[in-house]
Design a protein around this nucleic acid. Structure first.
Lengths: 211, 211
DNA sequence: TCTCCTAAAACGAATGCTCGTTCTTTTATG
DNA sequence: CATAAAAGAACGAGCATTCGTTTTAGGAGA
């Protein structure tokens, strides 16, 4: 290294994140395919060449977005898990996290774009598969806790039950995204009703919790 | 009408369906946006002008696909409902219908494309919203039956419970599309476990049912 | 500390291609 | 034979990406 002309590594990372942030904004409002590189570049406030220094194609940007779009909610779930609350309370907190991602600035609409792309592009598909298996693993912890605490039967099939409980998350998110309902409180009442089915004694509390 | 040069109305309808069938094939393999009009026209075996006689834009074709893509599964659910089976058996049959749509020739991957588009295009969004509210209404019938039969508490919140049960469908479909698991039998064991939670006496039957 | 100098970093005009759509022409029908 | 239906060439716009040029950061030599 003679005439070393490099910029700080933090700067490189920051530039990369600047591009990804712009990509998230664009993808959120225009979608993966309707967003042009020009749109994205303009949003980032950079030049064509600058962006192509950090990502060698649009697909590579999409792949990077796909890899990061699950991170927030998984972190949230892991934080819920360490509190070792009753299952329904954990679910309530988890759904709060989903709500965050549904609201303004949330990435669930982008995630939906990514899911769609995952069924068409094997590279994106592999990334998504890995990430959502990780997310299921986080949810699995909640199920194990519920079995340990006696909320679920001791001989319950952990993976099967995890799949069903995990299904509540996209089940909620998609209903909200596509039809606008239900709100979290209502959905939670529904979950509680299923968990407590054939135990009418609990239902007064359920009704009350809906307010 | 003097020198009437019109072709039979059936012919017109058939041509329209021919175009939509080609669209479904293309959208399934290439996605809504990567499919060009040329692709679609070639798949239909028609000319540019012929297609534009029946649909005035690509968006109009997408909208027509969006409107039809839910039909199959809803019809299936309605048929399940008239049999008035126990809830878990109804769910088993409903999930069979979902499996059909997941397999080769099934339209769930296209549906996922459509959901994605629905968050970006208000016209598609309105169509999707209406269709999936209809689907939820079909699922609601199953919940009402379960309340009537005593499988769910008499004072259960019907709409809340419907939302939760309905969530099982996209919850299953998305897990299968994105991660490949679980299979229907496993997911059903999970649902059964949740429905029977805190009733360990039933679990022997649950385990057995998994095979 | 202050200049140079070099290579990385950033720039943006240019490119070639494909897109959705239009429109004129040809064909087929009752 | 009048007209709907089908055909397909043509078009301008916009796309992702390339590449030659300019700017800038920061170590080396004084």
């Amino acid at each position: 290294m003679w005439g070393v002309p490099r910029v700080s590594e933090e700067h490189l990372i920051a530039r990369r994140e600047q591009i990804l942030a712009a990509a998230r904004v664009c993808f959120l409002s225009k979608g993966l395919h309707t967003t042009s590189m020009q749109d994205l570049i303009h949003e980032a406030g950079l030049s064509v060449g600058a962006v192509y220094r950090y990502f060698k194609s649009k697909n590579e940007i999409i792949a990077a977005i796909a890899a990061t779009v699950v991170g927030g909610i998984q972190q949230h779930i892991d934080q819920v898990a360490v509190r070792r609350l009753p299952l329904i309370d954990s679910m309530s907190l988890v759904l709060d996290g989903v709500d965050d991602q549904l609201g303004p600035g949330g990435y669930l609409p982008v995630a939906l774009q990514v899911w769609s792309e995952a069924t068409l592009d094997p590279v994106i598909g592999a990334i998504v598969k890995e990430k959502y298996e990780g997310l299921r693993a986080s949810m699995r912890v909640l199920v194990v806790q519920a079995v340990e605490s006696g909320e679920l039967p001791a001989d319950a099939d952990i993976d099967a039950t995890t799949a069903a409980i995990y299904g509540f998350l996209p089940g909620y998110a998609l209903q909200r995204l596509l039809t606008g309902v239900p709100d979290k409180a209502t959905y939670l009442v529904g979950i509680r009703t299923l968990l407590n089915s054939r135990r009418p004694a609990d239902d007064a509390a359920v009704i009350q919790s809906r307010q």
